[in-house]
Design a protein around this nucleic acid. Structure first.
Lengths: 141, 141
DNA sequence: CCAAAAGTTAACGTTGACGTAAACGTTGGT
DNA sequence: ACCAACGTTTACGTCAACGTTAACTTTTGG
């Protein structure tokens, strides 16, 4: 599989090398494969993940701690597929999945809440914008 | 007009007294009337403003510096109505207004950009949610 | 009228999210 | 085989956004 060194990743994501290592340290980014000498080798998947983190951070305004919750929920599920998948106890399994499902439902609700508030904010700004444009018109008459 | 002391304001906005004073210090919140002894007296308008600031901070993820830009743009316009309104030079006036208009247009575009990314993020989460629910169904069959 | 509650300024402390510098090892081209 | 460019860890520095404490004044209820 194609891999990238940290400087490449830094350029395509816009993050500094320091930040990329920091995110790994926090557990936001899964650890990479290393070369014999210890250099990190990133895959395309790592890059996608980093882009998502940036979105969540800059656009949604989440703290790294909140993002960690999001990430862990996904990992929990993906990890589940291989580790718990083969368990015999369907009860345990279902209970586990339901926990994850509840978490996701809450996240969705939280996002909707944010979008609503954002739309509200936008309306307010648009109204101001409208009034300004009117005022400009009035300077022309 | 009805006024409130800082502790009241703290309770209804959820902000600490320290934070409220800090926002005033930064210029995010217009200064209040004071009592003879120097105590701040807030109006309903101050409270509304604080709620907006909290939204912009928590929901939109804006930094206080960004919020300051938003606030100043509004103040600039509101202040304009009384101070520049009566100027004779319609040229100066219109130019001024157009500056403000450009700023607002940019803000709107920025908000739309954020909403778009947020919607994208939501879709991704929803898809994951869907897969989880499917997996739960599968434990029942 | 007076103690307790609430307010004020000033200054230092803390936490999250990185930046930066030092000291050292790895890679890859000539 | 060498060296410039890039990588690694470790550790201290920084800045925004407040928290906390101190020392003091004002307001208010009994």
């Amino acid at each position: 599989m194609e891999t990238y060194k940290i400087d490449e990743v830094s350029k395509v994501t816009g993050l500094t090398k320091r930040t990329i290592r920091y995110y790994e340290e926090l557990g936001l980014l899964m650890s990479t494969q290393r070369t014999e000498g210890g250099m990190r080798l990133y895959t395309q998947e790592h890059i996608e993940r980093l882009k998502q983190i940036v979105s969540a951070r800059d656009v949604l305004g989440f703290s790294l701690q909140e993002i960690l919750d999001f990430v862990q929920l996904r990992e929990t599920f993906e990890g589940h597929r291989t580790s718990i998948q083969n368990t015999e106890d369907a009860e345990v399994k279902r209970h586990y999945l339901q926990e994850v499902e509840r978490g996701l439902a809450q996240q969705l609700q939280m996002i909707d809440q944010k979008m609503e508030t954002m739309a509200q904010f936008r309306r307010e700004r648009e109204q101001l914008h409208h009034r300004i444009k009117e005022a400009i018109q009035n300077t022309l008459t």
